[in-house]
């Protein structure tokens, strides 16, 4: 899976969990500062990413990921 595909699927998950339009989600958007995720939604995002990519992530490290581009890099490391 190439990086663009990963990014697209991540944005799709984020749009679904945070109930946003895909167009609002920029590559460098910060989950909290730009997209308004609260702590519960941050946890839901981690679970949704795991389901989407069928991976099991290190939750502590996953929580440190703050942006879409960071998530692309982090999730790619599991693929």
């Amino acid at each position: 899976m190439n990086q663009e595909e990963v990014k697209h699927r991540i944005k799709k998950v984020v749009a679904s969990v945070l109930k946003l339009d895909m167009s609002e989600i920029t590559d460098n958007a910060n989950f909290i500062f730009d997209l308004g995720a609260d702590s519960m939604q941050s946890m839901l995002l981690i679970a949704a990413f795991e389901e989407e990519f069928e991976i099991e992530m290190d939750v502590d490290k996953a929580q440190e990921v703050q942006t879409i581009s960071g998530a692309v890099e982090f999730i790619s490391s599991y693929l």
Binding site: N30, I32, F33, S39, E64, Q66
Partner: peptide, 10 residues
Amino acid sequence: VFPSSVAKLA
């Protein structure tokens, strides 16, 4: 009132 992770951005 943002969490500490993004306080610096604010």
